[in-house]
Computed example of a mutant assay.
Amino acid sequence: MRTLLIETSTSEGAVGLAAGTRLVARKQLSQARRHARDLIPAIGQLLDEAGWAPRSIELVIVDRGPGSYTGLRVGIMTAKTFCYATGAMLVGGCAADILAHAASDDALSVATLIDAQKGNIYARHFTRTGAGEPLEPTSELAVVDAKEWLATLPEGTLVTGPALDRFADVVPATLRTTEEGRRYPELSSLLGIGRSSCDAGRRDDPWGLEPTYLRPSEAEERWRQRHGADAS
């Protein structure tokens, strides 16, 4: 199955192509968050270099967040438009699940951190029963205070995610952290999560898929403060 992968939830955006379960091409996007300018040309370049026609893509997997508001909107709209135009299937992957998927097989407890601004994080905790077993979430994805939530995690938990770059100084010494360079969503993990969902028959409606935000954007919060919570 030929698959297009779209990852725009952070500043470390990327697009890729996969044949079956194998990643065959990838292209990094600008770190300046210029996803709208870079995304479509990057996809076109990847397809041209691979010699793949757009309609040969059978599945599109996109990170649906949470993460960068602008990046998610651009990535998901691009994925939906591509599927509508080509007839490809669509799967949206949760950013927390994608991050956890990349954790080492011997990590029995994994926590994912995504920056939610104002000292908060989008957080989720996972555990597995033994080395090599699948990770299962023990909590719903939620917006929490970073320092308070980290203090509740079991000793030895592996902490990962892009918010580590900001909150490393409040991670308790009883926890482990992933090394720098491995804290952002990876295309290989996006592929693994998306293929598992697709193979299980869990696919998304190109008309209905929306980003996972959990909280208003800063622009929306400023508007509400200025006009009142009940203003329309």
Results as ranks from 00 to 15, higher is better:
I6T: 01
I6R: 00
E7P: 03
S9F: 09
S11C: 14
S11K: 12
G13R: 00
A18I: 04
A19P: 05
R22D: 15
V24T: 13
K27V: 12
L29S: 02
R33C: 09
R33D: 06
H35G: 06
R37H: 14
I40Q: 07
I40R: 07
G44A: 07
L46K: 03
L47P: 09
E49R: 10
A50P: 01
A50F: 12
G51C: 04
R55H: 13
R55M: 11
S56N: 12
I57K: 01
I57F: 02
E58H: 12
E58F: 03
I61V: 15
V62E: 02
R64Y: 03
G71P: 01
L72K: 03
I76V: 10
K80P: 02
T81C: 11
F82A: 01
A85M: 14
G87L: 05
G87C: 09
M89C: 11
L90D: 00
G93F: 00
C94M: 11
A96Q: 06
D97H: 09
D97E: 12
I98M: 10
A100S: 07
A100M: 07
D105W: 10
A107S: 13
L108M: 10
A111I: 05
L113Y: 01
I114H: 00
I114A: 05
I114F: 06
G119H: 09
I121G: 00
I121Y: 00
Y122T: 09
R124I: 03
H125Q: 12
H125V: 09
R128P: 02
G132H: 10
E133C: 10
L135G: 01
E136V: 14
T138H: 14
S139D: 14
S139G: 10
A142I: 04
A146K: 00
K147Q: 15
W149K: 04
L150C: 05
L150T: 00
A151G: 07
A151P: 01
V159N: 04
A163G: 04
D165C: 15
A168H: 09
A168E: 11
A168N: 10
V170P: 03
V171L: 08
P172A: 08
P172L: 07
L175A: 02
R176I: 04
R176V: 05
T177Y: 05
T178I: 13
T178R: 09
T178W: 02
E180R: 15
R182K: 14
Y184V: 10
L190R: 01
G192R: 11
I193Y: 04
G194W: 01
D199F: 08
G201Y: 01
R203W: 09
W207S: 12
G208P: 03
P211L: 03
T212H: 07
P216R: 05
E218P: 01
A219K: 07
E221Y: 03
W223Q: 08
Q225N: 13
G228H: 08
